[in-house]
């Protein structure tokens, strides 16, 4: 008994550095969680806090004076409602169109017997590295009259070389006999694609669809570049663009204040009263759909990264 206890003790002593390491590691991980989550919880707290009270600062993880007024203000704002509709609309259309186009291209490229297989693959892959740049694209969109229209949100962005590679890799993993059997039964290529390959590819289509959807939802730059003029912006604004312009005004005020040495502090502070809380509420509205969805779907995203790193 005594001997065994001794051994245990020595083992413990031997393992002591390990335990310290695990402890430090766990503390570090908790620290990471805090860093990643704090800004969101803080924004949520501000958005649920009374606007006048928020200006005093010092709101941490919980709202001090609970109210839903800020959200009420956001949803009463006609401009933000338009932005919300546009954001949802472009996300839905781009995702549906993009998934269809990419999967059709991927199906054709996954067939080894296709004559132009190599040429088309290279033709598509080169687009990942060659880009004409912003100005030629702007000129082209102007010629196609995509500027200042809703179409600029979905027409140019349907194609994605990387998405095609991911779907193609998945289709190549399916047994060939599936397609062969359908072909023997007399189905045409498009029919095989639409009725046999597409339903089987649901997991990978979900991955690609989510990428496209998140990319579209998060995009503000398209609006900033291709929509100009007060009336057009009011009509074609998106949620992210609204956040962007609010942020710009905050930063501009910050620069002003710095250079003018708090000349008009009172007025600036009063203006802040509404913007800080409303901005927090808008941020929550813009972030909430993704926050709700991503924990359940992250395995699809991760899978996609693996496929891409192997084959890309």
């Amino acid at each position: 008994m005594e001997a065994k206890a001794k051994i245990d003790q020595s083992k413990f002593r031997q393992r002591l550095p390990d335990y310290i390491f695990i402890l430090c590691n766990t503390i570090f991980m908790c620290f990471i969680i805090l860093i990643m989550l704090y800004p969101f919880v803080n924004t949520l707290a501000i958005s649920l806090n009374d606007a006048l009270d928020s200006v005093k600062g010092g709101i941490g993880l919980l709202p001090r004076k609970f109210t839903l007024d800020n959200f009420d203000q956001v949803f009463k704002n006609a401009r933000i409602l338009t932005a919300f509709t546009n954001s949802v609309g472009r996300t839905v259309i781009s995702t549906a169109g993009g998934v269809f186009l990419c999967s059709m291209a991927a199906y054709v490229l996954s067939r080894k017997e296709f004559m132009w297989n190599k040429f088309v693959t290279v033709f598509f892959l080169l687009t990942m590295y060659i880009s004409a740049g912003l100005i030629p694209m702007y000129m082209l969109y102007g010629k196609l009259s995509l500027i200042n229209s809703f179409n600029v949100y979905w027409i140019p962005g349907l194609f994605g070389a990387f998405n095609i590679i991911v779907i193609r890799t998945y289709i190549q993993g399916l047994p060939d006999s599936l397609v062969e059997a359908a072909r023997l039964d007399g189905a045409g290529e498009f029919r095989i694609f639409a009725q046999i390959v597409l339903p089987i590819c649901k997991p990978v289509l979900a991955t690609v669809g989510l990428w496209i959807a998140v990319g579209n939802w998060n995009d503000w730059f398209t609006t900033a570049v291709y929509v100009s003029g007060q009336r057009n912006i009011e009509q074609y604004t998106t949620l992210q663009y609204e956040l962007y312009s609010e942020l710009q005004s905050v930063l501009a005020r910050m620069g002003e204040r710095q250079s003018e040495f708090l000349a008009s502090q009172g007025a600036a502070a009063r203006q802040n009263t509404t913007t800080v809380s409303v901005r927090a509420a808008t941020t929550i509205v813009a972030a909430l759909p993704i926050l709700c969805v991503y924990p359940f779907l992250q395995k699809y995203f991760v899978k996609g990264v693996h496929v891409g790193s192997v084959k890309g």
Binding site: I33, W217, N218, D219, Q240
Partner: peptide, 12 residues
């Protein structure tokens, strides 16, 4: 939790 910021836009 550590993936979270990746999914949100740069604006946020």
């Amino acid at each position: 939790i550590s993936y979270l910021p990746h999914f949100l836009s740069w604006v946020i």
